[in-house]
């Protein structure tokens, strides 16, 4: 059961990784690509990591529980660092004078 749940979650995560990646390719300018990259950082990571965390709990021991907790911590940390990094990049773009793409 746990395996299936985690399977679904991981698959979802991979799907969002795909979405984000494709967005990174397709979108026209740097700023909007960054929006797509945000998906990788958030949804993709969140889903796949929670899937893995659940998978880690397949056999419930203290060690496994701590492992799952650590995996969640990774998500927490990435949720802290991800936006910061994104913000840093955007900020750099603005300071470097990169103009956003505008609809004609």
């Amino acid at each position: 059961m746990i395996v299936y749940i985690s399977g679904i979650l991981i698959a979802g995560g991979l799907f969002f990784f795909l979405v984000g990646s494709i967005g990174m390719i397709r979108l026209p300018d740097f700023y909007s690509r960054l929006q797509a990259a945000g998906i990788i950082d958030t949804m993709g990571l969140l889903l796949s990591m929670s899937g893995l965390a659940i998978l880690a709990l397949n056999e419930f021991t203290l060690g496994n529980f701590l492992s799952a907790l650590k995996i969640i911590f990774i998500v927490v940390f990435v949720f802290l660092t991800g936006p910061t990094a994104t913000h840093a990049i955007v900020d750099a773009g603005i300071r470097a004078g990169l103009k956003p793409w505008q609809k004609k």
Binding site: G20, S21, L34, A37, I40, G44, L45, I74, V78, I89
Partner: peptide, 13 residues
């Protein structure tokens, strides 16, 4: 930068 950041995230997973 953006690409590397994403690669980093995926690497973690």
């Amino acid at each position: 930068f953006m690409g590397v950041n994403s690669i980093g995230t995926q690497t973690t997973v």
